[in-house]
Design a protein around this nucleic acid. Structure first.
Length: 222
DNA sequence: CACCAGGCAAGTA
DNA sequence: TACTTGCATGGT
């Protein structure tokens, strides 16, 4: 466990407190949220999920049987609603055809689970890792745009680093622990939302920019 | 008004 | 392989 990553974690935790991700009452709700939040503000996703609950459509069976057009209307507030309706239908259809139910995915190893999810249209690396970590409670570190932006700003990663270079970096330096991965990614998102916007970053007040007088990740090498 | 949000797939050269 | 574009609502 890297001392600096641990200290960065403590800085974020002290500043923001526990994030208690993922907001959701079931594995299915978390998987649905993971698809709906793609390139989309979480507040809009909450409205979409509320609509699904109100229409009794947030269950595996309901999502299997609901017509795509009806589903798309329910999730409209989350944006990209036609595309996401297709992706949700495709997701539950694949799970149903190959495993019968979402709970059966728990019998898979983390790697097989991740590979299966990645084979589904509409589920890329970040969405797959979000499901593996937050819905299935396995230690798979999630990388998002904020994570990359922060590491590039702190000169840990090059701008052209890909998803797996970033993922491997965290998994190599952190203790392999579901709770730690869970909270770490959530805290990075909190930092990103508040201080690491693309057009107006506020590095001045960012908790990660006040470590021994400089950026906290700076002296860490990949 | 512009810009962005917890991405991904498909098309082009 | 390496870019580019479509997808779409809602908040700041």
């Amino acid at each position: 466990m890297s001392v600096l990553l641990e200290q960065a974690y403590q800085k974020m935790l002290t500043h923001f407190g526990k994030q208690n991700w993922w907001p959701g009452d079931s594995a299915l709700e978390i998987c649905v949220g993971a698809i709906l939040t793609q390139n989309t503000n979480w507040g809009n996703v909450e409205k979409a999920i509320a609509n699904l609950k109100q229409n009794n459509s947030l269950s595996f069976e309901a999502l299997l049987s609901i017509p795509e057009e009806i589903l798309s209307e329910h999730i409209r507030p989350s944006g990209y609603f036609r595309q996401k309706a297709k992706r949700l239908k495709g997701f539950v259809a694949r799970v149903n055809e190959e495993f019968g139910d979402l709970s059966a995915l728990r019998d898979l190893s983390s790697d097989r689970l991740r590979e299966f999810l990645l084979s589904i249209t509409g589920i890329g690396p970040e969405t797959a890792d979000s499901m593996v970590l937050y819905a299935f409670d396995r230690p798979s570190f999630v990388i998002d745009a904020y994570t990359k932006r922060i590491l590039v700003r702190h000169q840990v990663m090059d701008e052209d680093a890909d998803y797996y270079q970033l993922k491997d970096y965290f998994e190599a330096h952190l203790e392999e622990d579901v709770g730690l991965y869970n909270e770490y990614h959530a805290l990075i998102v909190a930092v990103g939302k508040h201080y690491c916007k693309r057009s107006k970053p506020d590095c001045e007040h960012c908790p990660l920019n006040d470590f021994n007088g400089g950026p906290i990740f700076q002296s860490l090498t990949p």
